[in-house]
Write a protein that binds this DNA or RNA. Structure first.
Lengths: 282, 282
DNA sequence: CGATCAGTTGAAGGGTCTCAACGCGAGTGG
DNA sequence: CCACTCGCGTTGAGACCCTTCAACTGATCG
């Protein structure tokens, strides 16, 4: 039943089958595996590396924890993708970010004792579970673990710059281009292709994250495609002009014709390091 | 464009007023003071509470650390206010948040070794300085310190929900009302009045934080004042209808007349510009 | 195979951006 | 001491982008 944990890009329609094995089953792994996943230096195996650590499996759409739920544990994504969100009183769901492999989830609950944000899996996923009562103990006993937690939280804190970057006051197409480049960078970090990937989230989630209407997201996808920067088919996205997309994403406010114009007006006027890919793939 | 790339803080005349006593002078305090400031439970004094910890003073406009600067320490605000920001390639300054008393600053630098964001004091301020090489050691020796760091970072992580809350796709006046309520809550936490306070940041910083033009911020201030919810004179703000402001801030997208109408059934109080009486320093 | 949702596209309206101009206060230097 | 400068804050007017409502197609699922 685990033969699809390392989801490939063209994963068969797994979500079609509703009779997946029971979710939430608690396997167990070792603390050393978590440390390795998070990039800790394990040349000298830490003393507590063989401690058992629970692993939780989730299927698409399943909640890892709900808003307001009592904080019992923090999580480290072993595989899959999650969305972090917060629901307003009127029901509007504000997406705060998309969390992938080797990222921390739920740490914002520590200061209040309950989760200020919710988290749901966008695909078949699994997480390492660190109970709060273990967090302090392990940190004291395994310094490497404490360092890993610090780095993870620091990264999570850095991600809010990314959110600010896309929600900054710019045109919708620019927001989308920045979002796609963020995703591209993450795909590379996860070992996938930087140019072609499948979106795990629906347009509405993207729209919420970008701070625009979901129709505007659709139009922006079409606009970027018409510009020859990307090719998109539903959730499947391919960046056909990475340099052009980068140049386009640098536009902030104002009539954005300057930076981008000289890149697109004539191929001959391309920048020095810009090598154009084959023009079209339609 | 900024002539400051990696410049040290010692530079006396960084901004206009250079005749302040040299900033950056390092007093010293005790670790126990920091723990007390951060709300740690000190009924049984921790073993390392008498460790010396440096304190740094900053005047208004002085940078605590610059973008891209090497990460040497994290900071805890002892007094004053800072703005955290990030500068785009075209010079646009995106404000990520405003950091006040008992909040952590600069933790996002740990995962990269350099500061992804800058921080400048908005008024006369002071911070506790925790060098990175002390961070791990103190955490191992003083569990209470480690818990305090966890709580602080968790709070900082929660703050990004607040940013998302104001930058969410809503009308500019609603964004501003939410921002003012955030500020009000912080003022209470810092022991000040919830209804009347002085803004430490200029309109442009607010605009960047809210994701709108600074002229729009001005217009939104006027709009909230015309509605009789607040009274504003330059940086001085008074919330005259706290419940109304709360109700108004709940509007998300859409023509906001429903939720707010029934609360404001009575005719508007003094649509005329009711300027603030006389600003008094409280 | 019908129901529901995701995604796209069009049209109309309105909110915000941008460019202006102006008042004001603080710091500067004559 | 007082013009002077410069940045902050406010307000107006026009253009433009986005929102909203609407209809439609296609995909997914029971």
């Amino acid at each position: 039943m685990d033969n699809v944990i390392q989801m490939r890009e063209q994963s068969p329609t797994w979500c079609a089958a509703g009779r997946l094995p029971r979710a939430g089953v608690a396997e167990h792994s070792r603390l050393g595996d978590l440390l390795e996943l998070m990039g800790a230096d394990l040349r000298d195996p830490p003393p507590g590396a063989d401690r058992p650590i629970p692993v939780r499996q989730l299927h698409a759409g399943e909640a890892l924890f709900h808003e307001g739920a009592l904080a019992e544990a923090i999580h480290f994504v072993r595989a899959g993708t999650f969305k972090s969100f917060r629901t307003a009183e009127d029901g509007y769901e504000q997406v705060l970010g998309f969390v992938g492999r080797a990222e921390i989830l739920g740490f914002d609950a520590i200061c209040r004792g309950s989760h200020p944000t919710g988290a749901v899996a966008l695909e078949k996923s699994s997480v390492y579970v660190v109970l709060l009562r273990d967090l302090g103990e392990w940190g004291q006993l395994v310094p490497e673990f404490e360092h890993m937690v610090h780095r993870s939280v620091s990264s999570a804190l850095s991600n809010r710059c990314e959110m600010a970057g896309v929600m900054a006051a710019v045109a919708a197409e620019v927001r989308l281009s920045r979002f796609l480049l963020q995703l591209s960078r993450r795909m590379v970090a996860a070992g996938h292709s930087a140019r072609r990937f499948r979106l795990r989230m629906i347009r509405r989630d993207i729209a919420s994250y970008l701070g625009v209407a979901h129709e505007t997201v659709s139009r922006s996808f079409s606009a970027l495609a018409d510009l020859g920067l990307i090719v998109v088919d539903q959730r499947e996205v391919e960046i056909v002009d990475m340099d052009g997309l980068h140049a386009f994403s640098r536009n902030t406010r104002r009539h954005f014709d300057d930076v981008w114009a000289n890149h697109h007006s004539r191929p001959a006027a391309a920048t020095a390091n810009a090598r154009l890919a084959q023009p079209e793939a339609a």
